[in-house]
Design a protein around this nucleic acid. Structure first.
Lengths: 252, 252
DNA sequence: ATAAACTATTCCGTAACGTCAAAGTCAAGA
DNA sequence: TCTTGACTTTGACGTTACGGAATAGTTTAT
């Protein structure tokens, strides 16, 4: 059974434009092309399209979906784990936004008159990051935006002592990680100690620490350039190494 | 006090590229431009930038932020309310994705067998998405958001009775299909009755039933392994037979 | 034969910038 | 004064996953 692009489109609910796009990026090629240039799809292509739609529903990018389909021995479990971590991060960020918007709304409805826009803006700014202005820039410069943005709510209440402690922990952590990297064994004692230090550091900003989140952070370090360059400064390949270490650490 | 683009960039943590972009879209213009073409910012621009960053932290688009800043009597409360609703919707969607990814992960790991019930739920979810994708915007444009949400709710939160009815229908359908397959005639009375039962089953989840969709479903059953194995359990070759039957059924 | 329906290939646009590239500007040391 | 280096400018392309439009060729039906 053969299908024109329009037939396939109507069957699947996917626009012809999209199907052409999938052809263009080699995600879904027609089984053959007629002499007229018309695309012709077969049964196998319908099957593939269904799979594509399935992965799409889970929020995977087309690029990853392509890898799923082309590499037959793709490590699905790892890929899904990565994806889950990413989604969890996204949700946490959303939670933060929602929280702040709710607060701002309350402020608007409350004592602020809408006419006095400037007053409100000033107030709202104070509302969001009183502490952020004090330490935020400093922290941001050191650890990258992600730390501040993702944990705005928690960072806000951080004390100077805590900040000093974080700084000390971080120094110690970097030293330990560097030594650990020299051993080349991410499961070794040194590497695991680095993980422990990192966990302590992390707990300052994220009181609700979980292994799941720690694991996710390992992924974040690799995928986020800002973190990666930070760690790569210690040693080339250090980020990957640290991720391995975290993987071991969190599985114990 | 006057600031070069670099100074402002370093003070605010915003890249020069971004500042130029904000100039380009008229979100933040420099106070003046030197004869050399260099941008020069003043104190007022710093304040404006702070405001921009505040709104950005709440997840507003630059376009909306511009309206906040330029329209002096903007209805903040309404805008914030809309924004909040949008964020909540996004989170709900994320929750759904996370749920599905978790389930898929469990399935991959083999922790649970994709039971019939879950298959069922997955399928229902897919129908919702498809329904939303196809008609959502249209309906929403006509009747407002409420309608779609209610409609989706109906599908997602199918009642126990509906579920029971679906189950009964499905059993009956399978029996009929099995008998029909024995006759070998996809255009015969029994096969057509099976199609009718299938249609009724389908209509529980898909109120906007159309022959076209039913037809497409026939293809889906053959191409999707999860469905295919389900039907092949009844009899070998049964899936193909059923598709033929649907073809006849929908052409009447 | 001609109109209707279908299909193809560009190309532009989306949001919010990052990342070069080529070229002009400014302050300071030799 | 010349040159070097730091700084700045304006393009222009890349990113995601397509939507939409323009233009031109193909197939099908009457």
């Amino acid at each position: 059974m053969e299908y024109s692009i329009n037939k396939l489109s109507k069957m699947s609910g996917i626009s012809t434009r999209t199907l052409r796009y999938y052809d263009e990026i080699a995600l879904l090629k027609p089984v053959r092309v007629a002499s007229s240039g018309y695309r012709i799809y077969g049964r196998k292509e319908i099957d593939t399209l269904q799979q594509i739609l399935f992965y799409k529903e889970l929020g995977f990018s087309l690029d990853k979906i392509k890898k799923f389909l082309t590499a037959p021995d793709f490590d699905m479990e790892t890929a899904f784990n990565h994806h889950l971590v990413e989604l969890l991060n996204q949700r946490e960020r959303l939670d933060g936004l929602i929280d702040n918007v709710k607060k701002s709304l309350a402020a608007i409805k409350g004592e602020i008159t809408m006419s006095d826009k400037e007053k409100f803006a000033a107030f709202a700014q104070r509302l969001v990051d009183e502490n952020e202005r004090k330490y935020g820039a400093e922290i941001r410069a050191k650890y990258g935006d992600g730390t501040v943005d993702a944990s705005n709510e928690r960072v806000r209440g951080i004390t100077k002592e805590q900040y000093e402690r974080a700084k000390r922990l971080n120094t110690k952590f970097e030293e330990t990680l560097k030594s650990a990297f020299a051993t080349g064994d991410p499961a070794g004692e040194l590497a695991q100690k680095a993980c422990e230090l990192h966990k302590q550091w992390l707990c300052i900003f994220y009181p609700n620490y979980s292994k799941e989140y720690h694991l996710g952070l390992g992924e974040l370090y690799i995928s986020d350039e800002r973190f990666k360059t930070n760690y790569e400064k210690l040693a080339a390949g250090c980020t990957e190494f640290f991720r391995e270490a975290i993987n071991v650490f969190c599985k114990e």
